[in-house]
């Protein structure tokens, strides 16, 4: 059995994959499991604590990238490239919020790329995701 705090994520990922295959029955099965096991605990108490964890992750990416390279795993290398960029964006948004406060979001929207997790702060979502090149239709407004 995989460690417990990966179960809801594995399941929600498989549910999305089943949806893409137009298999609503299988998607529903995995979604139900994703919800049932979604009882994880926060690992940080506030935004500053979350920033610390995210900053630590940024130092882990290069090692993981090396491991994926030496295993010849192109899929993992791709995921790590996107993940590293998105994680850097997460950190910079928290940084900017911690220094500017609520004013950072004044009159602006937040848009998340459903394909890679890139977060955009601005008036409207970009035409193409700068991290993964997904089209504007893959962005959702928070």
């Amino acid at each position: 059995m995989e460690q417990k705090d990966t179960i809801p994520v594995i399941c929600s990922n498989l549910a999305k994959a089943a949806e893409k295959q137009q298999n609503p029955g299988m998607a529903a099965e995995y979604s139900a499991l994703a919800e049932k096991y979604d009882d994880g605990k926060p690992s940080a108490e506030d935004l500053a604590g979350l920033k610390t964890l995210i900053t630590e992750d940024l130092t882990v990416y290069p090692d993981l990238q090396k491991a994926a390279e030496s295993a010849g795993d192109r899929g993992a290398q791709r995921a790590l490239r996107w993940g590293q960029k998105v994680t850097a964006i997460q950190k910079s948004l928290i940084d900017r919020f911690l220094s500017k406060g609520d004013a950072l979001l004044d009159g602006k929207g937040l848009f998340v790329c459903e394909a890679c997790g890139f977060i955009f702060l601005g008036d409207s979502a970009p035409d193409i995701c700068p991290v993964c090149k997904a089209p504007v239709s893959r962005f959702s407004k928070v």
Binding site: S12, N13, L14, V86, I119
Partner: peptide, 26 residues
Amino acid sequence: KLAAALKQSLRIVAEDCAREAGYMLP
């Protein structure tokens, strides 16, 4: 709002890790 965006983003990045750990095809 920022935390809600981070929540969504973190789940997507986590799912990508799960996918590349071998859970790609249901």
